[in-house]
Amino acid sequence: MSTPTWDGVVPMTRSRYLYLADLAGDNLLVSRPIAHNVNMPYDGDEEKAVYVVANRDGLACYAGQTRPSRSWTGAAGIRLKQHLAERSKRDEWDTFWVLPLKWSTKPAIIDWYERTVATRLMLPLRHHRGGTVI
């Protein structure tokens, strides 16, 4: 067996989600403290979001943001699909948690929030050089 590419330190749990959601303050669209399976259809209604992916061990292994220039509902799900084109992600990613943000959230705040979420989850820096925009 090869060593996993997507490793993590802390488990994603409901209470950790709530802690992260709290950091977003009023920018949070709605609190959705549930894990979505990456392979199941996703029906979120957010247009901007920061999301956290958990690997098969339940550990947070990736955090990303999505703020499309046009408004798409379920933006996090769309971004996730794009990620899953990569084989290692398909193999090891298991669930994702969405922190939906209001459409009015400023890009600077989303950047700050993504960075904060990633560092608080002790996620490696290399995945977070430069913004991720679809």
């Binding site: 950091l23 977003a24 303050g25 009023d26 400023k106 600077a108 705040i109 700050w112 929030y113 904060t116």
Partner: peptide
């Protein structure tokens, strides 16, 4: 207070 309060 929220993490983003200072931005506000």
């Amino acid at each position: 207070p929220k993490g983003s309060s200072e931005k506000e």
